[in-house]
Write a protein that binds this DNA or RNA. Sequence first.
DNA 1: ATCTGTACTATGTCAGACAAAAGCAAAGGA
DNA 2: TCCTTTGCTTTTGTCTGACATAGTACAGAT
Lengths: 226, 226
Amino acid sequence: MTDPKLDLMIDRPAESVPEMVVRRIRDAIAAGLLPPGRQLTERELVELTGVSRTSVREAMRHLQTLGLVEPSPSRGVRVARLGSAEVREIYEVRDALEPAAAELFVLRATDEEVAALVAKVQPHASGDERLQAIYEFDGLLLAGARNSLLKSMLEPLHTRIHALRSLSVTIPGRLESSMQEYLELAEAIAARSPERASEASHRHVRAAAKAALKAVENLERENPES
Amino acid sequence: MTDPKLDLMIDRPAESVPEMVVRRIRDAIAAGLLPPGRQLTERELVELTGVSRTSVREAMRHLQTLGLVEPSPSRGVRVARLGSAEVREIYEVRDALEPAAAELFVLRATDEEVAALVAKVQPHASGDERLQAIYEFDGLLLAGARNSLLKSMLEPLHTRIHALRSLSVTIPGRLESSMQEYLELAEAIAARSPERASEASHRHVRAAAKAALKAVENLERENPES
DNA sequence: ATCTGTACTATGTCAGACAAAAGCAAAGGA
DNA sequence: TCCTTTGCTTTTGTCTGACATAGTACAGAT
């Protein structure tokens, strides 16, 4: 028995250096600071991050497997561009995984987790708050599904389409119907119906795919791929 | 115009050194030469492969993201053990992705690809031939689904459960029912019915999951986790 | 038999070096 | 003037060596 008042625990750096680099670059990409197509040479990254080339290279490899950067022939890597082909593939996979996650959530989440999830779809003031609530909704869903593999596959997908998500909601009426879809999903989950939850999730992803595809096609029309 | 008789093309190594290491280690694990739980120190790998520690480390990181090896605290990495929890997670994901792949195959594959797929489920002589045919079936399915992301997510899963697959078919009657399931899937695909194909694939994965889970639980009973 | 200290081993990270490949720019010829 | 060719520079891929840190194992002491 240890003294409950005694807390001498040392919190050691939970992340390795390359992991920190991955996180920082990922966030920078998500925030739009590193736009799609941006070239990243190892030299530049070493200077930007202050870590050695070894660590930079390891981080780049990881970001590559996440699909956030892509090799640029003999120019290092560049921030991945999302073309309509990639968006199609991503949404096809998401359309397979996310309904499954919703179903597993219904089967396994505690009542508290269900309540927390439902709370996220209550009406919010600003658009930013709603987007934030949606991200938290997704996080709760993935946690309650009790499948770390599923989580590790879906999260990178969400990251990749992050930019597109904020873009899709600019399509008139998309944000409203999206919130409606989330509401229906939450209702199905609250009712503890795996089938209805799966169906609702499926409908939502399909609608989101349509909006995202339209958004990216608009982008491609304005800005033909180089 | 170059002289058509003149062929001086140099076929350069298509794979980088770390990629070769990944492939070799992966195959060794799949073949059972590196059994689950086997410790792998960097030093040993450097000696076994003849490449530098840098490349070995990069390969290990990649194998880690594939789930084939897992970090072993301050002992480097070890070949991943498949516990019932991991098997459950893997099959839940597979159950989400593979029916989707079957559906996409129906929608997109050429008639030739369908014919090639159907040919794989014709009766075969030995059990080994049947297993081989099944792997080729999966490869064709993934190719015809026209989704490289889906492919890159399902293939590592197949690799991870490879050992279990060969183990599951030792369960009496499993091989026969498995072949029956593949036959039904092939029929649904030949009929170009996305729904039936998805359903058939779903049934197959569920049955395989059950068999795999039973197999791994037998293993765990005989050989309690250390 | 248990505890303690020390040496060893393994990883994480860094710095530097070199070859190979690709792009770029300048020089030279039509 | 324009095209080709040549050489330089940049960048990646890989290797080597080095050091700090952390965990392990063994031997010696109590």
